[in-house]
Simulated scan of single mutants.
Amino acid sequence: MLVGVLSDIHANRIALDAVLDDMPDVDAMVCAGDVVGYNPWPAECVDEMRSHDVPTVMGNHDRAVVTETGFGGNGMADAGVRYALDVLDDDRIEWLAGLPESRYCFDGRVRIVHGHPDDPNRYTYPSLFSARLLGEEDVLIMGHTHVQAHERFDEGIVLNPGSVGQPRDGEPTAAYALVDLEAMTVSERRVEYDIESVIEEIEAVGLPEATGARLRKGR
């Protein structure tokens, strides 16, 4: 079974379209959260996940929209949440509100969380990957750091597919991964997309200039 793994789309429709166009035929897709936030297309990205019926968990930006709490200390993040609240209708916000913090898929073989198995807000960078993160699942999928990495242990695989819409590992291309559950292998993928068009739309809708500038550097 071949699974396409997404995370941290962050309302970047152009990057998401590029990833979906690049992705080979898969048996299923999953998403490790943060469908919305930062970028200008929260509604379109929610609709894409819903139209493909992608099993998705709640990221911290998704939660901030649902709870209308924002990010007081981070102007870019806070602006993205406020923008999403302005453009998302009740139906889309209800979908976000229904996302769980953790979910198992494919007969329990895959567990999806956003930050850490024990804490959805904890950043789990590749240096912290270990077999101790795994439970009964064969593959643990995490997001939140926007850093693409995976490691295989005797007990299974720990994977972060990276960020579709706002990479932070120094590589500006959109990130995703493919997991072959039969072979127990991971393919990390990167895709170029039209960053300048995203920046133009960020400026057009009044989101912070820095939100677009960071996309050029993958930071």
Rank of each mutant, 00 (worst) to 15 (best):
V54G: 01
N160K: 04
A32T: 02
E203Y: 13
I93H: 10
R50K: 13
R219Y: 14
T145L: 07
A174L: 06
A213Y: 15
D22E: 11
R190F: 03
V36E: 02
D119G: 07
V3W: 08
M142G: 05
G75S: 15
E48S: 14
E201W: 10
Q148L: 01
S51F: 08
L181N: 11
G37F: 07
L215C: 10
V113Q: 04
Y176R: 04
R216I: 12
G59V: 05
W41L: 06
G75N: 15
Y193W: 10
A174T: 09
H144R: 08
T124F: 02
D180S: 11
R219Q: 14
E94V: 13
L134I: 12
D119P: 04
G70Y: 02
C105L: 12
D107H: 12
I93L: 11
Q166P: 08
G70H: 04
V198Q: 07
V113G: 03
L88W: 05
M76I: 15
D169Q: 05
G72S: 14
R190T: 02
G70F: 05
A174K: 07
D27N: 09
S163I: 00
I195H: 11
P172G: 06
H114E: 00
G59Y: 08
E171C: 07
E94C: 13
D89V: 04
N121I: 11
G4F: 02
V198M: 09
V186Y: 03
N74V: 14
G206T: 03
A149D: 11
H10M: 05
V110C: 06
G143F: 02
A204K: 13
R111P: 02
W95E: 10
L178T: 01
D138W: 12
P126V: 02
G80H: 06
S7V: 00
A32R: 00
E101W: 15
D90G: 06
L88F: 06
D154A: 14
M23Q: 05
G218E: 11
E101M: 14
G59H: 04
R216N: 11
P42T: 08
V147I: 13
I9Y: 05
D138E: 15
V65N: 09
R152Q: 13
T124Q: 03
L6Q: 00
S130M: 07
G70V: 05
D27T: 03
E137L: 05
V191F: 05
P55G: 00
W95P: 10
G162Q: 03
D27A: 08
L140T: 10
T173H: 13
G162W: 01
H150L: 01
H10R: 07
V19D: 04
D21S: 15
L128C: 13
N74C: 14
K217M: 15
V26Q: 00
E68R: 14
A204L: 12
D91W: 11
L159I: 04
S197P: 11
E151T: 11
V164I: 07
N60C: 04
A64V: 10
R168V: 09
A64P: 03
I157R: 01
V186D: 05
S130N: 06
D180Y: 08
P24V: 05
L178F: 04
M23L: 12
D118W: 12
N39A: 11
V139I: 12
D169E: 04
E171L: 09
Q148N: 01
D34P: 03
G218K: 11
V30S: 00
V179Q: 02
T185I: 06
P55C: 00
L181Q: 10
